[in-house]
Structures are given as structure tokens and as C-alpha cells.
Nucleic acid binder design. Structure first.
Lengths: 238, 238
DNA sequence: AGCGCACTACGTACGCTGTACGTAACTAGG
DNA sequence: CCTAGTTACGTACAGCGTACGTAGTGCGCT
């Protein structure tokens, strides 16, 4: 009856230390940093409670004193890389500022390629997430639309950045970590795609594929997508 | 040296049966259907090789005759639900047609709530994915832009649909499956958010939050996002 | 016709995961 | 000073993906 309550927890709401008992050996930041280090070096699958504990030099189960569930560890990681955002002074040009924010997010994801895989699952408003949102709203100050619309712009832009950069990274990662080379992988997939196209069942796709010359420039596609989204919110263009 | 080659495989390129030996007990469609049934009933985490095999009534390792890696099972699943797309006759109104496609994708995802979680990882061009792309291109026939731009439109739209519907589902799922109620969860999160806002560190967020009255209508936000993206590609609006 | 081999079927086993639980050491508050 | 709340962490368990070995089956070739 007086057992531990089955109550939801937001890790950010839980105090970092409580005063009684031995002093905690680590801070939350230590733990996040260790997990990020592992994820950067070995990929997200290397982030296990055992590995993080070993990286910190403590027993596996000691981690659970700081992080009640593994999911919370992920939340710590996302918050940690959120600190890498440069919260620059808004210039007054909201389009340029938001583009800069987007490019920076993309750069962070390329530094920490596990971020896009983690983003969808992480929901909480961590401290650095809140700081970033506030910064985006500051950049959007000159934009004369309701606050709700600004929120929608930020969400749409962030979603697209995550999706696109995630794709870029997935494409690049498939090369690494596989026992075969990127060329082989591509060759096999393209051979299959070619065989499908050759059946004539997909005439329009065939046209689209043969029309394009050379490999797709993913970065250019990304930037065009950003511009288009900004266009869609720009009152000067309607 | 003459061991099994470490060569990439596209499951769709691998023939479904080869004529020699005993007849396979299942088709790929059987397996996909079983996996989808489990995922619908128990969630994606219920989809394990053991469970799928049990659902089919065969030994766990027999599954590996049909599906070399679990990842391929996921690809089968995505392809299976792709068959639920209605490939209607294009009306000539590309905006309306693409909106219909997007809404249908959203409906499919709400029927199979595990799809958004799986989408980012699945890369291959499965038969039904190809059919759907072809159908989208057919819908975009009246749109007078280069083929590459059409592809970008489709990708952007699909990405947004996945992201938004994934969010809708994640929000709804958090209520289920948790040992606490959605109200409790929300209360705790909102209490934390309120405490953060109360610090005054995020004035613009505070304004945005207090300005809005009532809960956010996620579906309306979704539809606005779609319209904006279509706007961005509409030559009649530039 | 009959042999051989490619294929299906599947039990066992291994290394790994998240984490529940119990116990020992430690320190701040009453 | 005592005691209650913490930290620390070893052990244990259920479950995962899948490598490997063996037995049975039936098509294709000689």
C-alpha cells in the first residue's frame, strides 16, 4: 500500500541529489557525457547500461540510482547534444536565422549520427530543448504571424531537418558497419531496381530515374526543402 | 575461401522458392501477415522471431529460411501494409489527389500504429512502395515541374506525414501501455513545464503557451502543414 | 530409375540485453 | 548518537537475435 507509487516521472523534475546518504559519485552531466562518448564511438547500439556503467567505472546497477529507465538515459543524451546549439543573437532576418539554426542542427546530427534515430522517441522538454525553442522564438520575433503559427513553423522545420539528415546518415552508415562495401550494396539495390523498372510496370518512375543524370546531391535537396518551407510561412510571398 | 559470400541481399531480389527440396510451408505474404497481426495486437515489441514463428505454427529457426535477418521481416511488414493504399484514378487535380494520398497514408498508420517507428529504418524499394511511388507520379502528371521536383515533393510530403502521424500516435500510445493514466502523465509533464516557465527563463515560450486556449488540435495542425507544403510547390501561387 | 544435393525444418546453445531484488556501506537530520 | 534514506553493486532471470548442426524431403541430372 505504501509501496513505491506507479507514477510517471520526468527525469528533469527529479532532484539531482537529495542530501541524505553518501554523496553521489557522478552528476547527470557525467552520465550523459559517457553515453554520448560511447554512442559517438560505437553507435547507438553500443549504449547499454553495462557499457555506460563501465565507461563511468561503476557497477551496472549503480546507474539505476541516477537513471530509472534506459529511456531516460536517451533523454539525457538528447539534452546533452542540445547544449551544442549556438544561441546566437537574432539578426532581424528571421529566414536567415532559421536557416542557420537548421544547418546547425544538421551539423550536430552529423557529429552525433545517432540523434535522428533517437529523436522520435524523445518527447520531454529537457532544459536545452526549452532553451533552443526559446531561441527559435527569438529569431522569429520579426515574423508577423500568431505565436501558434511560429510554433508550427519550428516543428515543421525541425521535423524536416531530422528526417532529411536522418536519411543522409542512414545512407552513409549503410556503407560502414556492413560486411560489404557501399558500392556492392548500391550495385545490388540498383540492379534490383533496374530489373523492376525493366518490367515496364513503372513507366513514370522509369522516366524519372533515367531523366536524372549523376547521383542525387542530398545536401542540395535538403536546402531546397528548407527554402520551400520558409516560403510557405513567409507573408511577403503570399 | 569458397565459404558463403558476404554479399548484400535485397529480400525482394531473392526468389520466393527454388524448386528443389520440400515445398516451403509458407509464402512471404503469410509471414508478413502473421507479423502484422502480432504488431497490430501487441505492438512492435511483440514482433520477435519466436512469436512470429509461433503464430505461423513453426519452429523459430525455420523462419530464417524465409527471412535472413529480422530487418528483412520489417521490410516485409512495411510492404504488406503498403498494399492497403488505394491506387485511385487520378482526377487531374494534383493537389486534391496528393492530399488524398497523404490522408490515406495517415489512416493506414493509425490502423497500424507501428509503421512510423519502422519507416526511417526501411530503405528498400519494395514492390508496393514502387507501386505507390508510381501512383503518386501519376497524380502529379498535371503538375508542370521537372520530374526531380516531383520526387522531392513526394519525399517531403511522405516525410511530414510520417513525422506528424508518428507524433500523434506516440502521444496517444503514451496513455496506453503505461502503468499510469494519460492524465497523470500529462499532469506531471505540465507541472514540470509550468515550473520551468515560472522561472521566467523562457519568456517567449511562456507567452506562446498562455496565448493558446484549449488543447492543440493535432489533426488540424497536420492538415495545415500539408497545405503549406503543397503551396510551396504550386506554380500558380508563386 | 535412382542417386545426389539443394532445400526445408528445427532443437540446442551462446552471448547479449534491461532490470528486479537483496545486501552492505555510508551520512545527514532529528 | 541513532536511525532512516541513500548510494553501491553482485546476482539472477526472462527474453532477445541468431550461429550451428542434424535430420528429412523431393527435384533435376545422369
Amino acid at each position: 500500500m505504501a509501496g513505491r507509487a506507479a507514477v510517471p516521472e520526468v527525469i528533469w523534475a527529479r532532484p539531482e541529489r537529495t542530501g541524505r546518504g553518501p554523496k553521489p559519485a557522478f552528476t547527470r552531466a557525467d552520465i550523459a557525457a559517457a553515453a554520448v562518448r560511447i554512442a559517438d564511438a560505437q553507435g547507438l547500439d553500443g549504449v547499454t547500461m553495462r557499457h555506460v556503467a563501465a565507461e563511468l567505472g561503476c557497477g551496472t546497477m549503480s546507474l539505476y540510482n541516477y537513471v530509472p529507465r534506459k529511456e531516460d538515459l536517451y533523454e539525457l543524451m538528447i539534452d546533452a547534444v542540445g547544449a551544442e546549439h549556438e544561441m546566437f543573437e537574432p539578426t532581424g532576418d528571421w529566414r536567415a536565422d532559421m536557416l542557420r539554426n537548421a544547418e546547425e542542427t544538421r551539423a550536430i546530427m552529423h557529429r552525433h549520427t545517432w540523434v535522428p534515430r533517437l529523436m522520435p522517441g524523445v518527447f520531454g522538454f529537457s532544459p536545452n530543448t526549452l532553451r533552443y525553442l526559446e531561441h527559435c522564438l527569438a529569431c522569429l520575433e520579426p515574423l508577423d504571424v500568431p505565436a501558434g503559427t511560429k510554433t508550427e513553423l519550428i516543428a515543421l522545420l525541425n521535423g524536416v531537418v531530422t528526417t532529411y539528415t536522418g536519411n543522409e546518415i542512414a545512407t552513409a552508415e549503410r556503407a560502414r558497419a556492413m560486411p560489404w562495401s557501399a558500392e556492392e550494396e548500391n550495385a545490388v539495390r540498383m540492379a534490383y531496381l533496374g530489373s523492376q523498372i525493366a518490367t515496364g510496370a513503372y513507366p513514370r518512375m522509369t522516366a524519372a530515374f533515367t531523366e536524372q543524370s549523376g547521383p542525387v546531391d542530398l545536401e542540395a535537396v535538403f536546402r531546397r526543402a528548407l527554402e520551400r518551407i520558409l516560403d510557405a510561412f513567409d507573408p511577403d510571398l503570399r
